[in-house]
């Protein structure tokens, strides 16, 4: 059993038995609130075949520093939950299939595809979207570098690239080619802004751009 599952008190097997779609890797129970709207029991016993859903489940999570409570069906992805329920629209829905990276957000500091995560999996966790890194008047270094290097055109892939770049540079302040490939190979742009994005990343070592 993974640490995550231990924390949630819900085994992978029992979760799948519950009939909810998708695989569990996040801390479900940690953010589940007692007495949720659908009447799903709070998940406390790993041995019991507890179920959540299909009706809405009340959860709590932190988004860009603010605690948010909402009731979502287990099938709602983190991306759709952010965009449709919480009006956090920085992360974009493009491929909706874990390929393009436009929905990249940080979960407890780690970059993930929000389209490939159920929102209930992020219960009890801390989500940082591109809006949480900085604002137009107080940009994160990476956001500033995207502007200065013209690493954006239409800008629809940009939120995902900015978050992925910030995560990459936080771990590798002067990334190697292999680290760049691993860190940004999961993001796609259609306008063709890779030259600028590469300048952001390669300028990071000496250019004052830092991640995190």
């Amino acid at each position: 059993m993974t640490d995550d599952a231990k924390r949630s008190g819900l085994s992978r097997r029992s979760f799948l038995c519950s009939g909810a779609a998708g695989a569990l890797s996040g801390g479900l129970a940690a953010g589940l609130l007692p007495g949720d709207a659908a009447g799903a029991a709070a998940v406390t016993d790993a041995e019991a075949p507890d179920t959540v859903g299909p009706g809405p489940v009340e959860i709590e999570l932190e988004v860009n520093g603010a605690t948010r409570r909402l009731a979502v069906e287990p099938r709602v992805t983190l991306l759709d939950g952010l965009r449709d329920r919480l009006d956090v629209t920085g992360p974009k829905r493009v491929c909706d299939r874990g390929t393009c990276g436009a929905c990249t957000v940080l979960e407890d500091g780690r970059p993930i595809y929000a389209c490939s995560r159920l929102m209930i999996e992020s219960a009890g966790r801390s989500i940082t979207t591109v809006e949480g890194l900085g604002s137009p008047d107080a940009m994160h270094d990476v956001q500033q570098a995207f502007v200065e290097n013209d690493a954006q055109q239409c800008g629809y892939c940009t939120p995902g690239f900015v978050v992925a770049t910030a995560a990459l540079l936080a771990r590798h302040p002067a990334p190697s080619e292999q680290e760049i490939e691993a860190g940004l190979g999961g993001n796609l742009c259609r306008c063709g802004t890779y030259k600028g994005i590469r300048a952001v990343v390669e300028g990071a070592g000496g250019g004052g751009v830092s991640g995190g």
Binding site: P136, Q143, D150, Q152
Partner: peptide
């Protein structure tokens, strides 16, 4: 000069048609 809408795009503050709620 840098593009004027760079900051709103790189921070996710730009509201696209698909972001309207």
């Amino acid at each position: 000069p840098a593009r004027l809408d760079g900051p709103v795009k790189s921070t996710g503050f730009a509201k696209y048609p698909s972001d309207q709620n």
